[in-house]
């Protein structure tokens, strides 16, 4: 497992630790029959996995009349962007995309700030009740928020937070597993660094910001990316917490207001493609980071 990504970057001056246990994929000097077979099977599976996406994109480029033709044709006879135009003209989707951006950025930023602060306190400071509070948070990892959806909604309506951005975002910030992951990473940062800074008169916030955070790039990226993907794709809570279509996120809007598309499959697929685009674009741009973030944060 990519141990290297989880350990703090070694200080530039210090000797590097033991080399990461050969974490390199085996390289085959020339194609062997096994390698060729693996490639063929691998590509076959990839084609099967891509087929629904290709089908959705091709459908979105057809005129409505063509979508329900039997027998089915893969390629549109007369390719057109009419479906995209119709979706964009209706305007809902742009609104939902904007809401998704607001909510996901809010959730990610708050999660990072709040969890980093807590993890630092658990890792680097001593205060009364530290042990049992940490135990309580770790126990919180076991709580499935989805099962608490009804009591949570009841409480949010008491607080008057239904149909607000905060109401959608705040419950998603409570991710005790992220505190746990961050603490474990901070624990591995040698004490000498913070102590040197403390001797120079730096306060805890200063130590956190100028010593711990700069050494924690990989884990912060992992937690941030993972949180963002989860917030972007979360359905149940945003669905329960919003009744106003103007506040819906992409998954909620597309999942519940699809009636408004009637049986216009080309438009449905165009909306699906547009709704999927942002995260797929992020993935294409930062493939390596996303893969690492999901593996690292998901693994713990």
């Amino acid at each position: 497992m990519s141990a290297a990504t989880r350990t703090p970057r070694p200080p530039r001056t210090a000797p590097t630790g033991p080399p990461p246990a050969a974490a390199r994929p085996r390289r085959l000097p020339r194609p062997t029959p096994g390698g060729v077979l693996a490639a063929v099977l691998g590509v076959f599976l990839a084609v099967v996995w891509l087929m629904p996406l290709v089908w959705a994109v091709l459908t979105s480029l057809k005129p409505e009349a063509e979508t329900t033709a039997v027998p089915l044709r893969w390629l549109p006879l007369e390719p057109t962007f009419a479906a995209y135009q119709a979706v964009i003209e209706r305007g809902d989707l742009q609104r939902w995309l904007l809401n998704s951006v607001v909510v996901s950025v809010l959730v990610t930023a708050l999660t990072l700030v709040v969890c980093v602060l807590a993890a630092y306190a658990f890792s680097k400071t001593e205060f009364p009740g530290r042990a049992w509070l940490f135990a309580l948070f770790v126990a919180g990892i076991l709580v499935p928020p989805q099962a608490l959806i009804v009591p949570l909604f009841d409480q949010m309506s008491v607080l008057g937070m239904v149909d607000t951005y905060w109401g959608v975002a705040l419950p998603q910030v409570v991710a005790p597993v992220m505190v746990f992951i961050l603490k474990r990473f901070f624990d591995a940062i040698p004490r000498d660094y913070e102590e040197a800074a403390r001797l120079d008169g730096a306060g805890h916030l200063r130590v956190l910001w100028s010593v711990v955070v700069p050494m924690s790039g990989p884990v912060l990226a992992a937690v941030g990316i993972f949180t963002f993907v989860q917030a972007w794709n979360n359905f149940l809570w945003p669905f329960v917490a919003t009744a106003d279509p103007a506040l819906m996120t992409v998954p909620v809007g597309l999942g519940t207001v699809q009636g408004s598309y009637g049986i216009q499959y080309a438009q449905e697929m165009a909306a699906a493609v547009l709704g999927a685009l942002p995260l797929v674009a992020v993935f294409l741009l930062f493939q390596r980071h996303v893969v690492r973030g999901v593996t690292d944060a998901g693994l713990k």
Partner: peptide, 12 residues
């Protein structure tokens, strides 16, 4: 190819 679907919102 294998991972891309994981990034799609459930509604999509």
């Amino acid at each position: 190819s294998y991972f891309a679907p994981f990034l799609l919102p459930v509604a999509v």
